[in-house]
Each structure stands twice: as C-alpha cells, then as structure tokens.
C-alpha cells in the first residue's frame, strides 16, 4: 500500500518530446516507473528512448492502458493538457509545469468538478512511492522504501530536504508528494492527509507548509478532528516580508493573512508536533514517531 501511485501505475508523459519531458521521462523510467507512452500532438509514431509517442492522451490510453499522466508542457498549453487528461478519464494527472496563469487554473479547477481524475500540482515536484513509482522531478535515491512515514508539502527542494533527513534517521517513506506552490491547485493537504489516514502502511505524517492562503490552518483543524496518526509540521517563511511574492505564486502574506505565525499557532493548537528549526526535523520525527509507532 501507499497513496495514489504504486508499482501498477501506468504513466504517460504529456510533452515527452521537449527537452524537459525527455529528460524526466528517462529519469522516471530509470527509477522503475512504468512509463508506457508519451503524448505530443503531431509527433505520433516517434519513439523517445523506446517509449512510443501518440498524438492525443485518449489515443495513448487506448493503445497502452495508461492510467496516469505527468505533464511537462510549457505554461501557455498546460491547462489544456490537464483538461485533455481529465477528458480521457485518467485516474491521476501530475502537473509539473510552473507559471500557468491563475485564470486558466480557475477554469480547470471548476471544469474538473464531478470528474474522477485526481490532479496533483501544478508547479509541483510530483509524487513518489519509493521503490515503486516516481512521477515527477525529485531525486529518487534520497528516498527509503517501505514506510512508515507519509510526506506532503507545498514545496519542491524543501520536500527533498525533509525526505533526506527522514532517510538519514532510518525512517522510510510510504509516499511523498508536493501539492504545488500555486494559489489554485488540485489535490490539497486534506486530500493527502485523509489518504494517509486510510493507508494502513502509513503510521505517521510530515506536513510541510509555507506562507500564503489558509490551507495549513484548514488542514490543522482537519487533523485534530480526523486523524489518529502523529503529524509533524513545518512552515517556511517566518522571515518573509509582507506583500512580496516569495518565488512561488501562492507564497505571499497579504492583508495580514497567510502568515507563518498564524499557521504555526493553528498547528500547535490542533496537536501537531511543530518543528521550529529545519535542521532538526529528522530528529524530531524520530523522537515523536518512535513513541507512537
């Protein structure tokens, strides 16, 4: 078990003939992911490192039974790429692309209501179930298969940092995923926490948030009401000046809302073990999780 992806996940890559698409499709394949197809309109019949390319997601799914997609297409075309994957009724779409206009994502978000496809991202590192399936741009070797920790984060390299510290402490991971740094995204913290709660192999969770919006506050309240697995939380951006966009489009403190302090308070009040300093996250997890699992 794990959440959302496993060794049976069959992945197609939208934008596989681009430089990024080609590289990351190769990296995922090398890790052991079942990359079964690529999609680039007009390039059907080509192969990218033995992976067959199709003109459309629907066609690729018909011929290869792909059930998940990794999107690595430029921002102007990414929203449409998501909708194409949704219309082809894939189970999972992981959108790596950074820089999609917010208005496009609003339309996608509303257009996806009532559809069964799960979207992870955009502007995210992807998802990995160590040892089974990697759909994304994260470095595979830092992960440790077999659980018991689930990791969910709004960031990319910060997630790698967290995973690395867990691995160093001998704490393996069930599934690690980044939900993306954009203001409008697909899968949210609560979706992931809920899945981790349901997953018998996941015994503990690390949740990594950052300034902007109120997703961490909502997640903290949800954890208090619904989870019996221990959660360690970290928030980036205590020193971020208000009104400035800190790299991620969604990472901004505006009108006094979305501050790191408010998020940390919400976490503490809801029984989450707050990590005060990133350097000791692995040790804190070891301490908290060893008691409880």
């Amino acid at each position: 078990m794990a959440i959302f992806v496993n060794k049976d996940t069959r992945v197609l890559v939208q934008g596989i003939t681009g430089k990024e698409g080609r590289f990351h499709a190769g990296q995922c394949s090398e890790y052991g992911t079942n990359i079964v197809a690529g999609v680039t309109p007009g390039k059907a019949g080509q192969n990218v490192n033995t992976i067959p390319v199709f003109n459309s997601v629907a066609d690729a799914k018909r011929k290869t039974s792909a059930n998940a997609s990794m999107i690595v297409v430029p921002p102007p075309f990414a929203a449409e790429a998501i909708l194409e994957a949704v219309d082809a009724e894939l189970d999972l779409v992981v959108c790596i692309t950074e820089g999609i206009p917010v208005m496009d994502m609003l339309r996608v978000k509303i257009g996806m209501k009532g559809r069964h496809t799960r979207l992870i991202g955009p502007n995210c590192p992807g998802i990995i179930t160590p040892g089974e399936c990697k759909i994304g741009i994260m470095p595979g070797p830092i992960h440790m298969p077999g659980g018991p920790v689930g990791v969910v984060s709004r960031s990319g390299t910060l997630t790698y940092e967290v995973v690395h510290q867990l691995t160093k402490q001998g704490l393996g991971q069930t599934t690690c995923l980044g939900i993306g740094g954009d203001p409008i995204n697909g899968t949210d913290f609560i979706d992931c926490l809920s899945a981790f709660q349901e997953d018998p192999e996941t015994k503990a969770v690390v949740m990594v948030g950052e300034i902007g919006g109120s997703a961490e506050e909502e997640a903290a309240a949800w954890i208090a009401a619904n989870m019996n697995k221990p959660v360690v939380g970290f928030i980036a951006g205590l020193t971020a000046p208000p009104g400035r966009r800190m790299g991620h489009a969604g990472a901004i403190v505006s009108g006094g809302k979305g501050t790191a302090e408010a998020k940390l308070t919400a976490m503490r009040e809801n029984g989450i073990h707050v990590c005060e300093s990133l350097g000791s996250l692995g040790e804190l997890c070891k301490e908290v999780f060893t008691e409880r699992i």
Binding site: S153, R154, S155, G156, T157, L158, T159, E161, G181, V208, E210, I211, F234, A236, G237, L238, T239, A240, M246, G247, H248, A251, A260, E276, S277, L278, G279
Partner: peptide
C-alpha cells in the same frame, strides 16, 4: 538556494542562528 520553499526556510534558519537574512 535552489527552490523557493527551501529558500524561505533558509532565511528562517539564518534568523534563528541569530543573524538577519
């Protein structure tokens, strides 16, 4: 730093070390 989240966390770490980013 590489990555926005890690860059923010790094600023926080600098501050926690007693100096200012």
């Amino acid at each position: 730093v590489n990555g926005a989240g890690l860059a923010m966390a790094t600023m926080d770490l600098i501050k926690q070390a007693g100096v200012e980013p």
